Simulated scan of single mutants.
Amino acid sequence: MADGKYAGENREFGGRMSFMINDDKEKLDSVTVKIYNAAGEQVRTLKTLPEKGVNRIIWNLDRKSTAEMTGGFGGGQGGGRRSGFFEPSGGNVVPGTYKAVFVYGSDSSETSIKVNMDPRIDVQLANLQAKETFLKRTEALSTEVRAATNQLNEAQKTIDKVNAMIKDLDTPEAKELAEATKEIKKKLDKTREAFNGPTREGQGIVRNLFPTTMTRQFVPRSYASSSFGAPGATEERLFSQGKESADEAIAEVNKFMEGDWKAFEEKVKATPIDLFEKVKK
């Protein structure tokens, strides 16, 4: 009886596209693959650093996310791991014929790739299109939320810069400004709770007991993504809850930025800071 062990690689998932590079340059340019749907809309961009000869790039049969974000899922081989390029995924594309355009320097070539639905699943194309439209609505809402949280992140960076600037100064003005930064930091953290909920103490990962604005952004997308049917009343209700929560949180950010933050900004600009105080002494 044989007792050897045999192992092999599983076939890669997605659209496997091969291309050849015949270039004498020592350092090759990157290859960009642009995926277009039947309407001519560019739905995905892949990039890879090729080698001389035959190369392969994998498209995960997904579209790019319409949300402005830095996280998310990659787009398969060539979507970012080898080229440093990253484009978040927005979910599977609907079945149809897609055009793939390969660009290398000033040269380009194109081919088509047909995406079929799993024949074991009975699904209507109209339902998939309705699902994609719904997911894009959730992505648009996520963009609004991210823009608001980015404002708070930038405000925190400014607070850190002010603290670093006055850390070693011993003037009355510097002490007064240090106190102001403490107060504005507390107010900023309080505003951030509109998105993440109050901070809970504890060891390890401590989750909030109740839904937050951020979790409410994820839930309608999760429900819609788990079904091949068109989003219904449940998904719409969850989206409405997420949007209501997001609108309230964004309103808190606007209130903070127009009130407490603007007053802090004016105080910082009006405070005379002598960075050469210790040198003079």
Rank of each mutant, 00 (worst) to 15 (best):
K167T: 13
N60C: 06
V162Q: 00
N196S: 11
K262P: 00
N55K: 08
R16G: 04
N55L: 11
K255T: 15
F218Y: 11
F73L: 14
E68K: 15
N92W: 08
Q42V: 10
I159K: 04
D3E: 15
L188A: 04
D107I: 07
E87T: 15
R82Y: 05
M117T: 15
T149C: 00
G15V: 12
P211H: 04
K136S: 09
P211N: 10
T158A: 11
L46Q: 04
V31Y: 05
T97I: 15
E183Y: 03
G80L: 02
T149W: 00
S112I: 14
R200Y: 03
A230E: 08
N150D: 14
E9F: 13
A38H: 12
N37D: 15
T271I: 06
Q156H: 07
D118A: 10
F134C: 01
T215K: 09
K190P: 00
M1C: 11
F276Q: 14
G75D: 03
E87F: 06
N196D: 14
L177P: 03
E9P: 06
R221H: 04
F102H: 03
V268M: 07
R137G: 00
V103M: 06
S89K: 10
M17F: 09
T149E: 01
L49W: 05
D168K: 14
E132G: 08
P95Y: 10
Y36S: 11
F218R: 12
E9G: 07
E265F: 01
